[in-house]
Design a protein around this nucleic acid. Structure first.
Lengths: 261, 261
DNA sequence: GCGACCTGTGAAAATCCTGTGAACGCAGGG
DNA sequence: CCCTGCGTTCACAGGATTTTCACAGGTCGC
């Protein structure tokens, strides 16, 4: 849960060379990046839940200023970095006052662009405690990061800090199988020693508390030889006989991989 | 709300021409500016309660990087803008990763420098400036920021300055768990040293005074391993069963609802 | 069906965290 | 110069939480 949180970035630029190089670096850093060669309606940007937007105004057409203003207005939480060719002081000042977070001049080194995007995100995150994202609900569960607790029908599960962080991590990656190493790395913050069973132990504690508070549901599933997957499902052997769910397990393409971090 | 609140800026640079011009502009903008020709101990910067720092690393001497790192570490809330002469991409990237918020290259137009400082500071405002909002009431407590005091039934709790600030911070974030680091950062103004127990001690003092003035209520709750949460609740085994709680409270804590899905 | 591995459990042992009481150092007022 | 109010630091005690272990029970590939 440290600095290296994954960043969702959108790039609006038609300089394919620059964009490609940038893409490689961001991918290596574990960020999620989407690229566009022309203006994207602000509404769509909203839907992407971005952390930052890197844009070359030359591809925005005539109403570049208006577009930037609209984006900054609609998404005050979004970090906006302009990366433009020639520009005057007056233009840069206008942009910055308008709500832009940083203005880089091309040609620029991708590494610097990334560092600046990172800097902007860091600053924004600092100013906005993780209050936003309303409570995450799953099954009968309600996970509230503002209280470091999970609730079922209003009753707290009394999770300890570690338990909560583990649950939150799993729930955030809902549906995905996470390997033990990846889990340990992200919750404990450092590499897991060979043979460490801490993750298993905490999974058990979590399952116990979940079972007590919300019997009839199973939330955490074991994937033998791999890791764990969070996915709320009404218990099978329950009174409801049918409703099968052939359960394709392997689920969509987005299977595993991406642990890295 | 991003009103031009006055910005407190410190400039560390020995380029008298630049500094002078800058000073004129910031003054015109109503900012408070202090200028230094050499490195200033981070502790002194803390005492200045700055919003931003504009610094030319060439006047910092040999340990410029170390200095910047210390400043960024101690004052994570401070906006740090480096304004340097020649520099390489590697240097800029190093600075930005280190915690610098922006890196400008000299010669630069004062107007742009100001716009960038402004941009960096813009993010930091989130705490609503409800300075003059009516007194905040919680349980039997009345917190009056205009008096720097809290009262119960008209009687002052005799809080000291720190105690009051701590209480106010907690009450403003009512219902939310605040971590010690965050508390220390906001009340003391700089980063908490590892192992510092000041927050705990003040919490105890607060609890003592609250208990004496308003027995039967518990206001500050401990979240083991995390921090503290302010939330007025009538003590459990209390004689008054219910009916109390005029309280408008921010949220009916949990009104369940989810289930089913 | 048979080992070789994994994972689920319980409980003991080792750590970490918070509540407290008290000593210190400082600064302002008598 | 002494006294008093405040903020900081310490050290310790009692709990709460994490780790570590040894086993039992399951799963997988042959």
């Amino acid at each position: 849960m440290n600095s290296q949180q994954t960043i969702r970035l959108a790039v609006i630029d038609d300089d394919s060379g620059f964009v490609t190089v940038l893409g490689k670096r961001t991918e290596a850093a574990g960020w999620q990046q989407r690229t566009f060669a022309g203006p994207v309606p602000p509404e769509e940007l909203v839907a992407m839940k971005l952390n930052a937007l890197l844009v070359d105004p030359s591809v925005l057409g005539d109403d570049a200023w208006g577009y930037l203003e609209r984006v900054c207005g609609m998404l005050p939480e979004l970090g906006v970095i302009v990366c433009a060719g020639r520009s005057t002081v007056a233009q840069r000042v206008r942009g910055l006052r308008l709500g832009i977070d940083d203005w880089i001049t091309k040609p620029c080194h991708p590494e610097e662009a990334i560092a600046r995007v990172e800097s902007v995100c860091r600053r924004r995150r600092r100013s906005r405690p993780q209050v936003e994202a309303g409570p995450l609900v799953a099954g009968e569960l309600e996970i509230r990061s503002d209280r470091f607790q999970a609730f079922v029908a209003g009753a707290s599960l009394d999770l300890t800090r570690r338990e909560f962080e583990l649950l939150q991590l799993l729930a955030d990656a809902s549906g995905q199988v996470l390997e033990r190493e990846a889990i340990y790395q992200r919750v404990w913050g450092y590499a897991m020693a060979h043979g460490d069973r801490s993750v298993d132990v905490f999974i058990r504690k979590l399952r116990q508390k979940l079972e007590k508070a919300s019997p009839g549901w199973s939330y955490i599933h074991t994937h033998f030889g791999v890791g764990y997957r969070f996915d709320p499902e009404p218990a099978v052997g329950s009174e409801l006989p049918v409703a099968e769910k052939p359960i394709v397990e392997v689920s969509p393409p987005d299977t595993v991989e991406q642990l890295v971090v």
